[in-house]
Simulated scan of single mutants.
Amino acid sequence: MDRLRQRFDLLTSQSDDDWLRFSTIVESVAYQKNDCLIQAGQAEKYIYYIDEGMVRLFLTNNGRDISLDFIFSNDFVSAYSSFLTGQPTAFTVQALSDVQALRFSRTKLLALYDQSHKAERIGRLIAEQAFLRKTSREVQFLTNNAKQRYVQLLEQNPVLVQTIPVRHLASYLGIAPESLSRIRREV
Score class of each variant (00 low, 15 high):
2 D>N: 15
5 R>K: 14
8 F>D: 04
9 D>K: 01
14 Q>N: 08
17 D>A: 15
18 D>K: 01
19 W>V: 08
19 W>G: 01
24 T>S: 14
25 I>S: 03
26 V>P: 00
27 E>R: 13
28 S>H: 12
33 K>V: 08
33 K>C: 08
38 I>P: 03
43 A>Q: 12
43 A>C: 07
44 E>G: 02
45 K>Y: 00
46 Y>P: 01
49 Y>E: 02
53 G>Q: 11
55 V>G: 05
55 V>S: 03
56 R>A: 07
59 L>P: 04
59 L>F: 15
60 T>W: 05
62 N>A: 15
62 N>L: 11
65 D>P: 05
68 L>C: 10
71 I>G: 01
74 N>A: 11
74 N>F: 00
74 N>L: 09
76 F>G: 04
78 S>W: 02
81 S>Y: 05
83 F>A: 01
84 L>E: 13
84 L>G: 04
84 L>Y: 11
86 G>Q: 08
87 Q>R: 08
89 T>Q: 09
93 V>G: 04
95 A>I: 04
96 L>C: 15
99 V>K: 02
100 Q>I: 00
103 R>H: 02
103 R>A: 05
105 S>C: 08
108 K>F: 10
111 A>R: 12
113 Y>P: 01
114 D>S: 15
114 D>R: 13
116 S>T: 14
121 R>N: 14
123 G>M: 10
124 R>A: 14
126 I>H: 01
133 R>L: 10
134 K>V: 15
134 K>L: 15
139 V>W: 14
139 V>I: 15
140 Q>W: 04
141 F>R: 08
142 L>Y: 14
145 N>C: 07
145 N>S: 12
146 A>L: 07
147 K>W: 00
148 Q>A: 15
153 L>D: 07
154 L>E: 07
157 N>H: 10
159 V>G: 00
163 T>S: 14
164 I>R: 01
165 P>E: 13
173 L>Y: 03
177 P>I: 01
177 P>M: 05
178 E>P: 04
178 E>S: 15
182 R>N: 14
185 R>W: 01
185 R>D: 02
186 E>A: 13
186 E>N: 12
186 E>R: 12
186 E>P: 00
187 V>N: 13
